[in-house]
Design a protein around this nucleic acid. Structure first.
Lengths: 107, 107
DNA sequence: TATAATAGGTTACATAAAGTAACTAAAGAA
DNA sequence: TTCTTTAGTTACTTTATGTAACCTATTATA
């Protein structure tokens, strides 16, 4: 018998957050709506993956994409209420990192 | 110019947590020390990756490995203080997941 | 003595995800 | 008509993950 012991909601949440870049994208968007190019520069992610991740976040209801038809086009990404509500999670990670991460450690 | 804007400690922390399985392993160990085989069964991870992840967590000071030379051998993994201090992070993820994760959604 | 059982891994190989760099689309500016 | 700029996409390489068979140490069993 295979009785899954780990809470499926938790498992679903952590599978989202443990996708590479996703946490950083949400963290970055917590400081306000941002354009595609800003995100690539600040986070250091390629266009290919940023595009893929943003589509995923959009389809999960965490992010909204807005196209401003200016010239050149401006596309902004912002968190939904669901996305914003991850702030306490990010705050705790931030808090933990201040206490425990030693930047001199070899990676 | 390339001024990294994201806090390097946060980046380091999230790169640890965004490794596949790592969050689940820590979450599971928060409920107490556990053996290798227990972890594979509960989490649903292969021996190969569990071994790799536990070594990584050990070298990062989050987990301690204890060998009990019984028959057959019993090896237990438990969180260090540094590992335990991730509880608030896990609690917030858990909390978020209860509010926002809809299990009927298509993956 | 030989065989088997059990826990905790490791190895070799296949598949999936991520990194990289060049390319494209749209739209107004020169 | 050609050039710029933003926001992607495509094709290809490299790395990470999944899978299953195998290995080792220790002791119980035939």
């Amino acid at each position: 018998m295979d009785t899954s012991v780990i809470c499926p909601r938790f498992e679903s949440a952590i599978s989202l957050l443990s996708q590479r870049w996703t946490g950083l994208i949400i963290y970055q968007l917590l400081s306000g709506p941002q354009r595609f190019s800003q995100l690539t520069e600040v986070i250091g992610i390629s266009g290919r993956l940023l595009s893929e991740r943003l589509k995923n976040l959009e389809s999960n209801g965490l992010v909204i994409r807005t196209v401003h038809p200016e010239t050149p086009v401006r596309v902004e990404y912002q968190l939904t209420e669901k996305g914003m509500s991850l702030k306490p999670v990010m705050d705790e990670i931030q808090n933990w990192s201040q206490h425990w991460v030693d930047l001199t450690e070899t990676k």
